[in-house]
Design a protein around this nucleic acid. Structure first.
Lengths: 331, 331
DNA sequence: ACGACGTGGCGACCATCTATGACGTGGCGC
DNA sequence: GCGCCACGTCATAGATGGTCGCCACGTCGT
């Protein structure tokens, strides 16, 4: 592997000149620059980013730590981040924490010790220690999709409570009186905020939250399936279900289909966050839509801003949600 | 940020001793080790991976360059890679080339200059130059899902031709006589091999390939949709369609549904690679199943082997495919 | 001819690891 | 009992590849 010294020797200049030519931010004699470039291509030289990172103590890599790479919500978000990153000269590496705080910690440690230029994270727990580690190290951080208490970092969220309220109110208006909620882990703000929206809608409608109709699952398909099964098996069945993320909605639907129950006739269902190829699913699913790509894009923009002005006041961006009524909730 | 020297000073030892304690492969006086560990936690020291990588000229990061992060096939594969990686002490960073050779090149350049310990790649083109760059640099590489000509790297594939033949034969046996094929870019082996299987099945059945029933799309949902639309608009409609990946199958289905055509009565359909929550889609989809997680797992295992013995003969692993018959293809 | 600006080269520096050499201790043999 | 040898452990120094500040030199214009 050729080094900058090899290039310098071949081009008959100093290593510093090669460096200047390669970085291009200082003016160099064009004839020398040409000699350098010729030497570079002749040797197949490519600069050693590791050495460069060490000297400059910065990199051009962003770590995006997402909690479930198999959830289309996150992958769509990633696309939004990538587009901003590449136009700002960063490369994105994706880390899948798999809703596992240990994996998350280890990726954060890697981001720190690899001196990543920035981190976008959708935390899988409310453990703020790791995120604070990043902040203390001066690493630009944007928290996405899930809010953390006692952390002063830029955050991009959607209006969870409002979306959930819309969804639940819609179910109320359809005449349902036993509306169940399958929500996520209690330590995730996206789960609690969506549950709060559900509770508020019920209360506005003069209904109260029936704890036997609430299940706390894990934002995964299997969790949604199990929660739905438990709702059907334990006590009288609900006449409607609000599931607080896309994969759990799928799981719940699968359970209903497998039991031979009709959606929406036996049980109406509304999900949070849209689902790829939703229009092929029968019945079509009523969902709370959120601007996933835009969430990623805004997060990436905040990250670039943060890198430029580390001491600016943290921003909290909340993007709107809207209810998309389809067949699964209308009788 | 504390350095190894700060730790050494606080512990009253040399930096080399701190290094030895941290790496743990050389015996150190336990009392010294304890002093070192105490200093480490007192200072909140974390080792600078960049400097370490420079000195040792190796890292513990694997780059997984996939061609579409929004395709469930690849994300499932990634899980297989991750599980092997973490038990072998590597961290996985995911790079989404988005079927774009330029993005792919830039990620390969990053992998090289960041001295990644290994690369798993599903190439988005048949441009072998980039992959050869990795090989020449001595970087362990495993090519996945798509075969490259003139590249001697470990490869993990599935039995594309056989799976496609099974699918097409099934459509023939269902009495279809105008079986269309929506396949992927001609420069991708997964597309051509699946097309070859389609052609072979037709030929075995005494039918010949009708070029007006073949479309070369891009392995994306929209591409499948457009290809299906073109099949319906240009000339007499097919009575069956074989789509060579999951997203194009979805796209084709969407087109049929939107046109008010009935699947399978008007047009039967078989896809390649399964689809998440396929059992919620009506009609349920007949697909060629491939062991996605296992593809990732095997690739990761090959990568660890390659890192251990760089000069071993490259392996080519072909995993089996099987036909899962469901409603979309049976009348 | 002098000054200013532009350009090239030298060397320090980033944080860590490894090779080398030195020192101390313990055991064994005479 | 004393001395030597061997082994284990620690510290020192150099290497890793690239960047950048600083200084010196050259050239061009006035």
């Amino acid at each position: 592997m050729a080094t900058i010294y090899d290039v310098a020797r071949l081009a008959g200049v100093s290593a510093a000149t090669v460096s200047r030519v390669l970085n291009g931010h200082v003016k160099v004699d064009p004839t020398l620059a040409e000699r350098v470039m010729a030497a570079v291509s002749q040797l197949g030289y490519r600069r050693n980013a590791v050495a460069r990172n060490l000297r400059t103590s910065r990199t051009s890599l962003w770590a995006v730590i997402i909690s479930d790479v198999q959830n289309p919500f996150f992958t769509s978000m990633v696309r939004g981040i990538e587009d901003v990153a590449s136009s700002a000269g960063y490369s994105v590496v994706l880390c899948n924490s798999d809703e596992n705080p240990d994996k998350e910690s280890s990726y954060i440690a890697a981001a720190l010790s690899e001196q990543m230029a920035g981190v976008v994270i959708s935390p899988s727990s409310n453990q703020v220690d790791d995120v604070n580690l990043l902040l203390e190290a001066g690493c630009p951080v944007v928290v996405i999709d899930r809010e953390l208490d006692n952390v002063t970092a830029d955050t991009v969220l959607v209006d969870n409570e409002h979306g959930a309220e819309l969804a639940t109110t819609h179910l109320v208006e359809q005449g349902n009186t036993r509306i169940a909620c399958i929500t996520g882990p209690q330590w995730l703000s996206s789960a609690t905020q969506r549950f709060d929206g559900y509770a508020r809608a019920l209360s506005k409608a003069g209904q109260s939250v029936d704890e036997t109709l609430v299940r706390y699952a894990d934002f995964r398909e299997q969790g949604g399936y199990d929660a739905m099964a438990s709702l059907l098996d334990d006590g009288p069945a609900p006449d409607a279900v609000f599931a607080t993320n896309n994969l759990m909605t799928i799981g719940a639907m699968e359970c209903l289909v497998q039991r031979g129950l009709s959606v929406p006739d036996d049980v109406a269902i509304v999900g949070f966050d849209s689902i790829p190829w939703a229009d092929l699913i029968r019945p079509t699913l009523t969902t709370v839509a959120q601007p996933t790509y835009e969430v990623g894009r805004r997060a990436a923009q905040l990250l670039t801003k943060r890198a430029e002005s580390p001491d600016a006041e943290p921003e909290r961006v909340v993007l709107p949600t809207s209810l998309q009524v389809r067949a699964s909730s209308t009788r």
